[in-house]
């Protein structure tokens, strides 16, 4: 294995891991408030198609990113209406949202299949100017990539160092207690869903506007579900999510490299490597009391009489 292919794996892990990390961060916030969003796949698709369409119409990739984020936030608010206001079952509502997202994104994206857009500009990682061109091209990243680690730190800070985060975590642990402390659990859950949706939208934007730079139906290929799994993997902690997203993407990139290297193993088997890795890590980490799921995750808050 050459140095180039190793660097290639790293670069590809960063590119495909970015959208995953934004989405995971969003889902960490949502789940910390007590809501599992199984419809994330649909949210990503609607965001990706909307962002791509706006970028294509306006010719401005940044407007596309903004549109994608807002679309993600709005999609999550639909879930909010179902599970917070209408007090529906989170799993069923999430799945319904996903299928809705499949259809809606296909509709939005239809006119733009095969369209060309100006993607997010890429800037070489500072300090690597000396690298040969072939290598340097692997490290030309867009703004969203540079912002993803700060975003993770920001989410950590919001959750653990601000009043809003404290209230949000309290709602996820015990909505009754949060209510007793004078907070509005319904409002906080809506807020968490909206912010989580914005982040998922950024992830989707990176996918369609910066990474793939095109729109194809179902281009997210399960990323929404992987993000839900990564939240568990990272034990609902935004900083651990960085490791999770990178590890998973590296595994994907690595197995693609193996496939292209002509190794004599069925590609279908190789495809399972990242998922096996996820399973393995979940088995090893297990569930300890200290980092267990938020106590009222998935529960409907009914309020009092």
């Amino acid at each position: 294995m050459t140095l180039l292919s190793v660097l290639g794996v790293i670069s590809s892990a960063i590119f495909s891991g970015t959208s995953l990390l934004y989405t995971t961060l969003g889902e960490v916030i949502t789940e910390r408030s007590g809501i599992v969003n199984l419809g994330l796949e649909g949210v990503l698709l609607v965001s990706a198609s909307t962002g791509f369409a706006v970028a294509s119409l306006t010719g401005n990739p940044y407007l596309g990113v903004l549109a994608a984020a807002l679309a993600g936030g709005l999609m999550n608010l639909i879930l909010g209406y179902l599970v917070v206001t209408r007090r529906g079952n989170q799993l069923a509502s999430g799945l319904a949202l996903m299928f809705f997202g499949f259809g809606l994104s296909a509709l939005i994206g239809k006119p733009y299949v095969g369209a060309k857009i100006k993607g997010l500009p890429r800037i070489l990682l500072p300090g690597l100017q000396e690298l040969p061109r072939l290598y340097a091209s692997l490290f030309r990243f867009d703004l969203l990539i540079y912002l993803v680690i700060p975003a993770a730190v920001l989410v950590w800070w919001l959750l653990f160092r601000t009043r809003w985060g404290l209230g949000l975590r309290a709602v996820g642990e015990s909505a009754d207690t949060a209510f007793a402390s004078g907070r509005n659990p319904w409002l906080i859950r809506y807020q968490a869903l909206f912010v989580g949706g914005l982040l998922a939208g950024l992830g989707a934007a990176h996918l369609s506007i910066a990474y793939a730079m095109n729109w194809t139906e179902y281009m997210t290929a399960g990323r929404g579900f992987i993000a839900v799994a990564l939240v568990i993997f990272s034990k609902w902690h935004p900083l651990r999510a960085i490791v999770g997203a990178l590890l998973f993407s590296a595994a994907v990139a690595f197995q693609l490299l193996l496939q292209s290297s002509g190794i004599k193993v069925s590609p279908f088997l190789l495809d399972t490597i990242p998922y096996l890795l996820t399973l393995l890590v979940l088995i090893i980490w297990g569930g300890t009391r200290k980092h267990a799921a938020p106590a009222s995750l998935g529960r409907v808050y009914h309020g009092t009489e």
């Binding site: 009043r163 404290l166 309290a170 015990s174 949060a178 402390s181 267990a292 106590a295």
Partner: peptide, 12 residues
């Protein structure tokens, strides 16, 4: 809330 610290519970 068992998963929060004493200080966080009070801060709430």
């Amino acid at each position: 809330i068992p998963a929060l610290s004493v200080a966080e519970n009070i801060a709430l």
